[in-house]
Computed example of a mutant assay.
Amino acid sequence: MKIVVNSTDRLILRSRPLLLAAIIGGGIAIFAAVVIANAIAGNSAEAERAALPMGMLLIAFVVFVRETVATFDRTAGEVVIARRSVFGRSGIRLELSDIRQAKLEADPGKERTKSGHPLQRAVLVLIDGKVVPLTGTYSADTGTTQAVTAMKAWLQPRKPKRG
């Protein structure tokens, strides 16, 4: 996650998996070219074999490539987590007063990546104990740690300035 705005009244975080979209999209394009070339050449068996991994990459694109924007607004007293994917937009609204803390959640299935970085995601813990993830996937991105640090600092009660 990337910190877009960090002021006393607003904190905006954004997650855009552009590299993942480029990698999966490139794979789709390559397999699509193979399918089209084989179909034009009349080799339908080879075209069908290339269509299967292309379909799997399409499913991966739909599942994993999602943009998330989390807007913390002190003036409105709310947090809006908006998600955008191939199928459209969705989101949730939380009252700022309902948030107990922000923290990193580790992937329960895997402790570390090959690079040694842990897989984790940013989550908000509500007063009732419910955990609301900001993104659906775990990542080894160091920006997630920075985002959680910014959320923790931003969620701290503000002390009035003395005049």
Rank of each mutant, 00 (worst) to 15 (best):
T68V: 12
Y138T: 10
I92S: 07
R66W: 09
V132E: 06
E48Q: 13
I23P: 02
R121E: 05
I92K: 08
A37T: 07
D9V: 02
Q120K: 13
L57Q: 03
P108K: 05
L134I: 14
Q156K: 13
V123D: 01
T71N: 04
F61H: 01
G129M: 10
G27W: 02
T145A: 14
G143H: 01
A22D: 04
D73I: 06
R10S: 04
G109S: 11
A21H: 00
Y138D: 03
V125G: 05
A39H: 13
Q146A: 13
E111L: 12
R89M: 07
R16Q: 12
A22P: 03
P53I: 03
A29P: 05
R14Q: 10
M1H: 14
L13T: 00
G116Q: 05
T75P: 04
K161M: 12
E78T: 13
P118R: 12
A29D: 02
M56H: 11
L52H: 07
A82D: 14
F61G: 08
A122N: 01
E48T: 15
M54Q: 05
A60P: 01
I28K: 00
I3P: 05
W154H: 05
L104I: 14
K114D: 09
L18K: 04
R74C: 05
S139Y: 00
A47T: 02
G77Q: 02
S90N: 12
L104H: 09
W154N: 00
G109N: 12
T149R: 15
Q120M: 09
P157G: 10
R84V: 05
R83L: 06
T135M: 11
T113F: 11
K103T: 11
I24R: 06
P133K: 08
S85N: 11
G55A: 07
G109D: 11
T8Q: 14
E105P: 01
T113N: 13
V79T: 04
H117F: 15
T149F: 11
D128K: 04
R10M: 09
L19F: 10
R100L: 15
L124M: 00
R100T: 02
F31M: 09
R162Q: 11
G116T: 03
L155Y: 07
A51L: 07
K152Q: 09
L94Y: 05
G116V: 07
A76N: 10
V131K: 03
D141Q: 03
I92P: 00
A153S: 10
T142M: 14
E46W: 15
S44C: 08
M54E: 14
S15Y: 03
V132Y: 04
A140N: 08
T135N: 02
P133C: 06
V62H: 13
V86G: 06
V65A: 00
V125I: 10
